[in-house]
């Protein structure tokens, strides 16, 4: 199997994406508390759900970026 190198730049990029996903999930949690008028303790009591949502969003972003990359490669191959 080929050796792969995960560069520092890539790691920073992925951490940024994960942080954005976590931020979105937290904002969703805050919005839901405001919209449905539930208890503010859900800011911390629902953290496990927030993390799961963040993870799902991150995996979706991986899928979408992988899809974009594959399409980009196919276009390049066709052009050649």
């Amino acid at each position: 199997m080929r050796e792969t190198i995960i560069t520092g730049k890539r790691k920073k990029q992925e951490i940024l994406v994960l942080a954005i996903c976590l931020g979105i999930a937290c904002i969703l949690n805050i919005l839901s508390i405001l919209i449905y008028k539930t208890d503010y303790k859900e800011l911390y009591s629902e953290l496990p759900t927030v993390f799961i949502i963040a993870l799902i969003l991150y995996l979706l972003s991986v899928g979408i970026r992988a899809g974009i990359y594959i399409i980009h490669l196919l276009i390049l191959r066709i052009k050649k």
Partner: peptide, 8 residues
């Protein structure tokens, strides 16, 4: 009620 995030 269910937590707000679940309702959303």
């Amino acid at each position: 009620p269910a937590p707000g995030i679940m309702q959303l």
